[in-house]
Write a protein that binds this DNA or RNA. Sequence first.
DNA 1: AATGAATGAGCATTCATTCAT
DNA 2: CATGAATGAATGCTCATTCAT
Lengths: 214, 214, 214, 214
Amino acid sequence: MIKGRTFRPLEARRERRIARRKTQIMNAAAILFSEKGYDGTTTKEIAATADMAEGTLYNYFSSKRDILLGIATEMNEALGGLLGNVEELKGREDIIDLVQRSFDLLVERLTFTRTVLMRVWIDDEVLREVVIEGVQRVSQQLQQFIAELITAGIFRPVDPALTARIIMGMFVTPMLPVLRGMDTLPTLEERQAIAEATVDLLLEGIRARPAPGV
Amino acid sequence: MIKGRTFRPLEARRERRIARRKTQIMNAAAILFSEKGYDGTTTKEIAATADMAEGTLYNYFSSKRDILLGIATEMNEALGGLLGNVEELKGREDIIDLVQRSFDLLVERLTFTRTVLMRVWIDDEVLREVVIEGVQRVSQQLQQFIAELITAGIFRPVDPALTARIIMGMFVTPMLPVLRGMDTLPTLEERQAIAEATVDLLLEGIRARPAPGV
Amino acid sequence: MIKGRTFRPLEARRERRIARRKTQIMNAAAILFSEKGYDGTTTKEIAATADMAEGTLYNYFSSKRDILLGIATEMNEALGGLLGNVEELKGREDIIDLVQRSFDLLVERLTFTRTVLMRVWIDDEVLREVVIEGVQRVSQQLQQFIAELITAGIFRPVDPALTARIIMGMFVTPMLPVLRGMDTLPTLEERQAIAEATVDLLLEGIRARPAPGV
Amino acid sequence: MIKGRTFRPLEARRERRIARRKTQIMNAAAILFSEKGYDGTTTKEIAATADMAEGTLYNYFSSKRDILLGIATEMNEALGGLLGNVEELKGREDIIDLVQRSFDLLVERLTFTRTVLMRVWIDDEVLREVVIEGVQRVSQQLQQFIAELITAGIFRPVDPALTARIIMGMFVTPMLPVLRGMDTLPTLEERQAIAEATVDLLLEGIRARPAPGV
DNA sequence: AATGAATGAGCATTCATTCAT
DNA sequence: CATGAATGAATGCTCATTCAT
């Protein structure tokens, strides 16, 4: 990227400043969106929370909507880092670890998650951005993973597509009250306990077992 | 409610007319809310869809918000009829039947469900109305049911509260793409297949089993 | 238009009320536009001048721009009534009379004229609406009139198109200071004097000539 | 201005640079003003067209408005050079030549002309700057010229003030479609033809006459 | 002198609610 | 009861101007 004398530190600094500003705005917006909804949040409030003038928002985003899409994209990219190595998931511990990292992601970016989950429900573009490109990819990796383990005789012969969907539901739902702001953030230990309980519930149902009496 | 000579047919007819009007308005509003969101829907549109003048809405509801709460309440009452007889749930078939009736409820009142699920995310009053009074009651019945079956030695000893939450997630999530409008409505057969797959996944994991070799 | 029992007085009254409101708004807007320009006028001011709330404007016009187009259209229609009978223009008196009626039109609708003349300069849609459909029609009738009188030997052989353009300039220009608000409105006598001087200048030119027959 | 030992070449260079910058800005602004109107043009666009940063504009002009007044002034000064020698106008050829030089001026500074003509309509200061000081001076010279030729028996006895106004209209109007951007720029030959036709119409009128001496 | 990010007052437009008919 | 015109506060966004670098 940076070669020979085309290295321009001023430009790099500029880009960092822009990135910092965008983050500052998205953080402020996500807090408000997650508390009051997209339509219930005004640009005036976003600016005040981000500690800048209203017009400054528009130097970094072309519209209120663009801030929302920025949040969705950021969330999506974070999600992308989660499942790169699905083929390495072999034992119970690996799966628990993956689940826990998912929880961590949701919790770290709590307001982003809340915002995106809320908006995906009616905004078709956010739906495409996040679900089609993000969740669906996760889902397909999951289906492939399930299919392989069925072939290997480790899982019972279930419908991979439907099961993938159910599994994702199993893992997101325990977090819903937290995301909604009804429960307080779970501690690390609590998250671990939830992850283990969920994985065990899943495995004991889905794992093929030697016929009794063998 | 109406007894003896206080029976006044005129008044009853009046009440029925009022109820019919309210339903007409809530149906229209739910369609629009579920398509465009609460804030994205104008009272002018609701009136047009309900085939009446804008001002007429306010003879039956005190505000746009009141229409939303009416929808939430209605949904909640429908949910109440679902789990009256939790102690009768004994075998796999009973549970599958319950799950299927839940699916039917969501699908029948598709727009109501969509509206309420969307709005519960940020509106604290809807949250109280629906979740605290509706979902939580279901959840508690479910926990009690799980606890009893654990005591009876039919289920493994799991955490009833967490498991109840996971189970509800398992059952709602397969319906999400339908509720979101991404998938078409499943046929009766499809709903049955989903219900069976979900219950089997649940049972095979949660049911205690005789030790192998016995 | 109104036949048998399809006569609906209520609807007619409604239409009259709407027409009255639109006129009220266009009059207010034209005053402000002509004083401060289109962009220099706010909808708040228009509403205040028309003695109604800001939102009420939008029950009758879909945008500020639509008010402007309404004014242009109205002006255009008034212009249309001016030149129906160009073939009746025979002598000097007829022409003076036509010129005077033009002056009257401009003066009566002073603010409309000012508004349209100002806006036609940069707004292409107003240009089309007014010039292409209005002025151009007048111009063509004028060219035809000139051509006929040339054929009849009454006019010198001049270029009809160019001459029509020059003539229109001769008649509009004396009014410009009035339209611009620099001069006060001319009285009827003054308008008559201007009309006669202009027509004579057109017909005879400025150069002194020996009396015919001498 | 610069005499004796106060002559400072550095200062002169500085002034030339400032003058060049101001011209650069006014040219850019005039293009945009003439296309989109004063209010429709942003300082950001002016800066971009003039190939400099937005803030730089304010080193040379105190406001957007000041740029406009600069354009008006420049136009006015150019107009001043046109009529210095009105007493030399003697024959038809001289007048045609003057008319043609006017056309050339308008065409050369097309965007300046467009801008000023547009803005003079509502901006009182531009009106004063250009009309009162520029056009009115032309008009007075014209009136004096007419009055003298009447006295000399060369022109008919017409009202000099009104006639001056009409004449100016005759000469500007043929150019309006060009200024408005509806017609393409006329070639030199076309401009000459227009000038001749206009002057002849002015001198001789439109009415056919028996050839003198017949 | 040049820059361009920051500013915030000001704008056109929307829409839930009221109320005279 | 039903109507739909009137209301005006509130909104997202623009842009001339300033000023630290």
